[in-house]
Write a protein that binds this DNA or RNA. Sequence first.
DNA 1: GGCTGACTTATTGTCTGAGTTATCATAAGG
DNA 2: CCTTATGATAACTCAGACAATAAGTCAGCC
Lengths: 248, 248
Amino acid sequence: MPVPPTSGATRTKALRLHGTIARKLGIAIVSGDYKPGDLLDGEIASSEQFAVSRTAYREAVRILAAKGLVDARPKVGTRINPQTKWNLLDPDVLDWTFESEPDLNLLNSLFELRNMVESAAAGLAATRRSAAHLKAMRAALEGMSKHTLATEAGRQADLDFHATLLDATDNPFIISLTNGVSAAISTTTMFKQRTRPLRRDPLPDHLKVFEAIAERDPGKAQQAMSELIELARMDTPISRRRKGRRAG
Amino acid sequence: MPVPPTSGATRTKALRLHGTIARKLGIAIVSGDYKPGDLLDGEIASSEQFAVSRTAYREAVRILAAKGLVDARPKVGTRINPQTKWNLLDPDVLDWTFESEPDLNLLNSLFELRNMVESAAAGLAATRRSAAHLKAMRAALEGMSKHTLATEAGRQADLDFHATLLDATDNPFIISLTNGVSAAISTTTMFKQRTRPLRRDPLPDHLKVFEAIAERDPGKAQQAMSELIELARMDTPISRRRKGRRAG
DNA sequence: GGCTGACTTATTGTCTGAGTTATCATAAGG
DNA sequence: CCTTATGATAACTCAGACAATAAGTCAGCC
């Protein structure tokens, strides 16, 4: 399979009760409403506050625990884990993180990681891509050109481009980052669009990456992708300098 | 906080019923016992097979769904997701993946990703590390030297070294990879030890990384870390060439 | 005085069985 | 041929009870 179906799947899955509660709690946690070390209310109290059964609430907590956000133990309660335990790259967690107000430093950190991973991925893709990958990427570029990032179709094409590139690395772990990366791109581009109606044309940057991969030139592909991400970061309104070091 | 406590926490948490079932099912899924697209048995049947209540089974499924392994929907059942949806970097999923027989290609893919991320991380750490980080890394190196990787204490020191390095990047997303990376290192080193009693001394490689970071030399640090990981990969018995491309 | 060990108790964990809701498949209608 | 009811099946939600775990306490002993 050259490239997965990549059907939209943006945020229209009709969450169940436990899902919505997990989401609410998750957002409250990642946004700092609860702090690491804090204890959630007991199951009976919490389930009453949310006006749901204990079952539904417990399943929500189970989800959060699976993502490393909390740790539930008898006699002690459900405690918020330190941030180091959080699966920050989990698509849901990422989504919740940028749900409310995107933290400046966090956004920069994400671009930093994307630069590390996607640049190297572009290098790998240059040597491993199949003809089908190339075709899919070309189609994605045409989609971007045709619809622009102002439309849903255009944004989807952008996501497809990056997803196909990661898929071309043939590395399952890198591919598994696709969901998270997609979430990141979605929120940041949406954030970009919200403030300014797009000042730069992102197509040339993407085209350079595509050409390098087509030519099977790893170094050039890596370089081009690094520039693409750096430009995207610059284009994001909140590209401020990193905050001072944490307490050290 | 210069470096998190990093208290062992290897595999002694006394899993509950839902945790053990999630683990069993998770291993069965990642090991290919169930294939993507397959349907699990219904809740009643499954819970009876495991000899637990539906509640416990459902919470187990909830965990797997949170990690992207399955997708449960009314009327259709609980279906195994395509591998692209799996959160392969989730510590638990990683642990389950290498529980049974480490897949050759998968192991190589993991080293590949580690090389990408940790090398770049070493570069960042070189410019951002605090004195406390340096101290912690020095202590870890002494621990490795003193106990060797043949002992639990030595392996823990190895993990501490890598964890501290990632922590020094001051990038939450990179730091959140620590858990997964630790799981990866644990399994691979254990795998190494099992077959051969350690042929190379890993200390010099680590020392070079440390020195570069101490000197605040990003390029040198990145290079040294890349060599370290590559050597570790070479030292892992199954360092075979990647398999041919997937169907495409 | 400080350590060991049984006891208390708060909290999550597990169970049962019933009723509800979403969604696919089929059939009826336009 | 496409659209719209209908029914069946699975997961979903609920309620209430009991079990298991482990932090904290306090007596007893060295």
